[in-house]
């Protein structure tokens, strides 16, 4: 049993599976996220895989300020993910609601709704930062540190 656990933990560290969720942002972050999958940044070669079902995912990447229309889906999807799970807030939107702060149609920021592990600032963050954020999420996943707020370092946007 211990061996299997060890194997699973190693697999998780080497090949994290992501689920990407747009909670009603402007699309900018989502496009940067898909740019990470394209040839230049090609995260798949680092073992990072985007999956279509939250039940298979280790890391939840959230973009957007969480609108009213998406909150229920966000909560369902988070609940569907198996433990251990890590939440990455991509962009300013999930962190602070960005320019949409104050709108009655917004339920965010994200940390009111879910525990957030990694923040990636930027509007939108550059693909390097996105990858760095995911790498940090992988590190958290690997050593299962207790949840607290971590902001990735060295980002100056």
């Amino acid at each position: 049993m211990r061996l299997i656990k060890k194997l699973v933990s190693m697999a998780r560290r080497r090949s994290p599976w992501l689920f990407h969720l747009n909670t009603g942002g402007c699309n900018g972050c989502d496009i940067e996220f898909s740019a990470c999958l394209a040839p230049r940044y090609d995260v798949e070669q680092a073992g990072i895989l985007l999956v279509g079902s939250p039940r298979h995912a280790d890391i939840l990447c959230v973009t957007g300020p969480v609108t009213r229309g998406t909150r229920a889906a966000l909560e369902t999807i988070y609940a569907q993910m198996p433990e251990p799970k890590v939440v990455v807030a991509l962009g300013n939107c999930p962190a602070t609601c960005d320019v949409f702060a104050g709108s009655p149609a917004i339920e965010g920021p994200l940390d009111r709704i879910l525990p957030v592990d990694v923040y990636v600032p930027g509007c939108p963050p550059r693909p390097h930062d996105l990858i760095k954020g995911v790498a940090q999420a992988v590190a958290i996943l690997a050593d299962q540190q207790p949840r607290d707020r971590r902001i990735i370092e060295g980002v100056n946007q």
């Binding site: 402007c26 972050c29 709108s103």
Partner: peptide
């Protein structure tokens, strides 16, 4: 995706509104 951009634009000054309408679409 409804964020209420038009509603927000009526509560921001013109310079802020430029940054706001820019974020209608990425």
């Amino acid at each position: 995706n409804f964020r209420g951009v038009e509603w927000l634009a009526e509560r921001r000054n013109y310079h802020q509104a430029i940054a706001l309408v820019e974020r209608v679409c990425g």
